[in-house]
Simulated assay, not measured.
Amino acid sequence: MSAATITSKGQITIPADVRKALSVNAGDRVEFVSLEPGKFLFVVAKTPVTDLKGLFGKPKKTVTIDEMNAAIAAKGAEAR
């Protein structure tokens, strides 16, 4: 089991064996996902957003930017 110490600035150094196992390097992004109080999942976030293209298939209806802005404004007005 690998361990790390938190600095006074809240930083940690990920142990070399963990970095190697996760294939992460300097500059890569990671996320901390809360599973339950006091327990987090450490996830490598290296997948570019462009890889999500087509994940949900083709949209049934295309929407213009003006239609999107109108929908956002309408929902914002409802919240007030």
Rank of each mutant, 00 (worst) to 15 (best):
M1H: 12
M1E: 11
M1S: 14
S2F: 11
A3I: 14
A3M: 14
A3K: 14
A4P: 03
A4L: 02
A4G: 04
A4V: 03
T5C: 10
T5V: 15
T5F: 13
I6H: 04
T7G: 06
S8W: 07
S8K: 15
S8M: 08
K9N: 09
K9F: 06
G10R: 09
G10L: 09
G10P: 07
Q11A: 07
Q11H: 10
I12Y: 03
T13E: 12
P15T: 00
A16V: 09
A16E: 14
D17A: 04
D17P: 02
V18N: 01
V18T: 03
V18W: 00
R19S: 03
K20C: 04
K20I: 05
K20Y: 05
K20R: 08
A21R: 07
L22Y: 03
L22H: 01
V24I: 07
N25W: 03
N25M: 09
N25S: 14
A26M: 09
A26L: 11
G27Y: 00
D28I: 00
D28F: 01
D28A: 02
R29W: 02
V30L: 01
E31D: 07
E31V: 02
E31P: 00
F32S: 05
F32G: 04
F32A: 05
V33T: 06
V33M: 06
S34M: 12
L35P: 02
L35H: 05
L35Q: 09
E36L: 05
P37G: 01
P37S: 02
G38F: 04
K39L: 14
F40K: 05
V43N: 08
V44F: 08
V44D: 05
V44M: 06
A45C: 02
A45P: 00
K46D: 11
T47Y: 03
V49G: 08
V49R: 10
T50L: 12
T50C: 08
D51K: 12
L52S: 09
L52R: 07
L52N: 10
K53Y: 14
K53G: 11
G54D: 08
G54V: 05
F56Y: 15
G57L: 07
P59D: 07
K60F: 07
K60E: 12
K61C: 03
K61V: 11
K61D: 11
K61H: 12
T62L: 15
T62I: 12
V63N: 02
V63F: 04
T64F: 06
T64I: 04
I65N: 11
I65G: 10
I65D: 11
E67M: 02
E67I: 02
M68V: 15
N69G: 08
N69Y: 14
N69T: 13
N69E: 15
A70V: 06
A70N: 11
A71P: 01
A71D: 06
A71F: 04
A71T: 05
I72F: 12
I72K: 12
A73Y: 09
K75L: 13
K75V: 11
K75H: 13
G76M: 13
G76Y: 09
A77C: 08
E78G: 10
R80D: 14
R80W: 13
R80Y: 14
